[in-house]
Amino acid sequence: MYKQQVIRRILLSFFIGLLFPLGLLAQNTLEVTAKADSSSIRIGEQVKLHLKATVPAAVFNKPEFRLLLPIVPDSLDHFEVVTRSRVDTLTQQDMKVLQQTLTVTSFDSGHWEFPPQKFEVYGATGANSVDTLFSQPLGIDVNTVAVDTTKAFKPIKTVRAVPWNIWDYWLYIAIGAAVVLIALGLWLYFRKRPEKKPAEKLPLVTPYDLARQQLKSLKEEQLWQQGDIKQYYTRLTDILRTYFEHQFGIAALEQTSEELLKNIKPVTKLNQQRDKLRSLLAIADLAKFAKLQPTADEHEDCMTKAEEILEWTRPKEEPVAQTPGAPDEKPQTGA
């Protein structure tokens, strides 16, 4: 009895020792599968097809390892691929799982087999090793829709006219009304908009005419008669300096009296009036800066000298050019 128990234990240990390496081998093998959610569909329905590859982590982490999932064409015998998911990689204990889901359909009734799918494996057993694994074929029944033949066929219905409803076209009506209102508004705007009249050209005032007007205004204001001597001579000299600057291009407003007298030498007509200008500027500087009180005759004499300088340097008026061939205009006499 005791010997039989010993023999049984020895045999049991022997079988366990044989099965243990097989279990380790099974855990280290690479498996591929193709499964469908259903083995029976109606014509035109869709079914999910799951492609799956289970790889040991030790093999998956090899730098030379590479696994290619099956490339399923869009159209197979009796099957059409509708969509494809991206390839996902999952970790399950010491295994890596690569999977992809295909959505397929069929429009042919009958029992059809989805063909075995080819998985290509590179570098699983060596750097240059190439292996090919195939999944099992899948049988799928594609059933037609049951038709009750005992009932009579119904006639084809005629085409029905849909009743007209204004609210079905409200968007087009609103757009048309908006276009009409915008066009009407633009028409009224441009109709009432005042026409732009060309700007009237103002006559150009020459430096000489401007200076004459300013001297006339200065005389009419009677500043020196009212005791404002400094303002009188300041205005008088500024009128002349501005005239020199615009007429002869001399920076007279920024120069002292001596500098101004030196800079008028190149201007012949103005240099001819140099003595008058010197006398006028001398009295004006004394009145403005030294608080000199000139006599009434000196006031009048300075104004007269300013007017004489203007008249002497007055620019010549250019004759108006007559159009060739035009008849001379003669003044009309009354009858």
Rank of each mutant, 00 (worst) to 15 (best):
A146R: 10
H111A: 14
F107A: 09
Q99M: 11
F134L: 10
Y169Q: 12
Q117A: 11
Q136A: 12
V121M: 06
W187S: 07
S109H: 04
N165W: 02
G139F: 04
E120L: 04
K157M: 10
T144K: 11
P163I: 07
V159K: 08
S106C: 13
S135R: 04
L181Q: 03
T105V: 03
D131G: 07
P163S: 09
P137A: 12
E113Q: 15
S129P: 06
R160A: 02
T105N: 11
S109P: 02
Y122W: 12
I156A: 09
L138H: 01
V142N: 10
F114E: 08
Y122T: 07
V130Y: 09
T125M: 05
A146F: 14
P116D: 13
T144A: 14
W170K: 13
Q136W: 00
L171S: 01
I175C: 08
W187E: 02
F119P: 04
T149S: 09
Y172E: 08
L133N: 02
A161R: 00
V145N: 08
P137M: 08
P155D: 01
N143M: 11
W167Y: 11
F134P: 06
Y189E: 00
F134N: 11
A174F: 13
P155W: 00
Y172F: 05
N143R: 15
L181A: 15
T125I: 12
I175R: 06
A178S: 10
R160Q: 03
D108Y: 14
T132I: 03
Q100T: 14
V159Q: 07
W187M: 08
N143I: 10
P155S: 01
Y169A: 05
V130I: 13
E113N: 15
A161Y: 00
L102I: 11
W167L: 09
G110E: 10
G176I: 03
G185H: 00
D141E: 11
V179K: 02
G139W: 02
L171A: 06
A146D: 11
Y122Q: 05
T105L: 10
W164H: 09
Q117Y: 06
Y172P: 02
F119T: 03
F114K: 13
S106G: 13
Y122V: 14
V104Y: 06
V162E: 13
V162T: 15
A152T: 02
Q100D: 12
R160C: 01
V142E: 13
